[in-house]
């Protein structure tokens, strides 16, 4: 087996080919209602046994709240007393609400930049955390430390960086500009960029997942590649990236999920207002405000259902696309 074989991703051994792709396996059970064979039934029973904690969990902690929210989304409800049925009223209101449009725009802006950027930053950190140096424990701890710091403390330090007069950011800006002080947080677009930059300090979480993924790449694969004369860039492209693809998929989907629900940083940096000019009013902030600030739980539930549907559609799309790039077969080398 040679290093070039990595790229081909040919499964070896007697693992069935579809085992390499967790998403495209087995005929869907509802198709044709065909009877399951005895082995199938035994496998099903075993599988269900193993995932039973999750089944209980989803029934108790998910199905009930979700059903309840879907019901509430068709009502006017303050959280107290009895809900009033309003049919599709909340959805009609949501599509006409300028703040829904604005917060959706802000959230998409955030997601389009923060998700890819976050992946790159996390990967760089993970590679740094994976260096073979004696003091690597310190680096790992340092890179992860900002992820431990409560968001309010984080926002304070970050705002020091952004100080229009003394902050690092403006010192750099002044090299190009006319020297006038600029407050990034005072601009409706700037504040989003600031929040995206701040979120990168918390890249330690995704980096840790990449690190675990990197530790999964057998050393022998690199050794073989090196024997074959592959340089560092080539190794990264042909070995590291393909073998990281399962965790890349994970970080991508959870990144999208996190970006669509971005809340805490924006809430703290803007003191819950979402200003200037609603530039940092993200969808989740507006949803939360409606639920617990304005006691409009029915409307908030409708917003939640919409967010859930969009998120789910995106996740399935990513999954579908992922069949092409995700490789679960470590041994394909």
């Amino acid at each position: 087996m040679t290093a070039t074989g990595v790229k081909a991703r040919v499964p070896v051994g007697d693992a069935p080919p579809e085992a390499a792709d967790g998403t495209a396996e087995g005929p869907p059970p509802e198709r044709g209602r065909r009877r399951l064979s005895r082995t199938d039934r035994r496998d099903l029973a075993l599988g269900l046994k193993y995932i039973s904690p999750w089944i209980v969990g989803i029934l108790v902690f998910v199905v009930y709240p979700v059903g309840y929210s879907i019901y509430l989304s068709f009502t006017r409800y303050s959280g107290m007393g009895a809900p009033t049925w309003v049919g599709l009223g909340n959805y009609v209101t949501a599509f006409a609400d300028p703040l829904v449009a604005k917060s959706t725009g802000n959230t998409l802006f955030y997601a389009m930049i923060a998700v890819p950027l976050g992946l790159v930053v996390a990967l760089v950190l993970a590679l740094a955390m994976n260096q073979n140096v004696r003091e690597v424990a310190w680096y790992r701890t340092i890179f992860y430390a900002p992820s431990l710091i409560p968001a309010f403390a984080m926002s304070f330090i970050f705002i020091v960086f952004l100080n229009p007069q003394f902050g690092v950011f403006n010192q750099v800006l002044n090299i190009f500009g006319d020297g006038a002080n600029v407050n990034l947080l005072g601009d409706p677009t700037g504040v989003k960029i600031a929040i995206i930059m701040m979120a990168q300090l918390g890249a330690g979480n995704a980096a840790l997942i990449f690190l675990a993924g990197l530790r999964n790449v057998p050393k022998t694969v690199y050794e073989a590649a090196r024997v074959d004369g592959a340089g560092p860039m080539r190794q990264f492209r042909s070995i590291t990236l393909p073998l990281l693809s399962p965790v890349l998929l994970f970080n991508l989907i959870t990144g999208v999920s996190g970006a669509l629900q971005v809340f805490t940083e924006a809430y703290i940096v803007t003191n819950g207002t979402g200003d200037p000019d609603a530039g940092a009013l993200f969808y989740m902030m507006y949803l939360y405000k409606n639920a617990f600030g304005f006691a409009e739980l029915g409307y908030a539930s409708a917003l939640a259902v919409l967010l859930f549907l969009v998120g789910l559609a995106l996740a399935l799309l990513i999954f579908w696309c992922s069949r092409r790039f995700v490789n679960y077969d470590v041994e394909a080398s």
């Binding site: 085992a19 967790g22 998403t23 495209a24 396996e25 087995g26 005929p27 869907p28 059970p29 399951l36 199938d40 496998d43 099903l44 075993l46 599988g47 269900l48 995932i51 999750w54 989803i58 902690f61 998910v62 709240p65 979700v66 929210s69 509430l72 989907i253 959870t254 999920s257 669509l260 629900q261 989740m284 949803l287 939360y288 639920a291 617990f292 908030a300 539930s301 917003l303 939640a304 967010l307 859930f308 998120g311 789910l312 996740a315 399935l316 999954f319």
Partner: peptide, 23 residues
């Protein structure tokens, strides 16, 4: 390996997109 496994798994993914205020 069991029949329907990956469809059920999509349900797991779906719950990632549940906004916390409604639950």
């Amino acid at each position: 390996k069991w029949p329907g496994r990956d469809l059920v798994f999509y349900l797991v993914i779906a719950t990632l997109f549940l906004p916390f205020p409604v639950t």
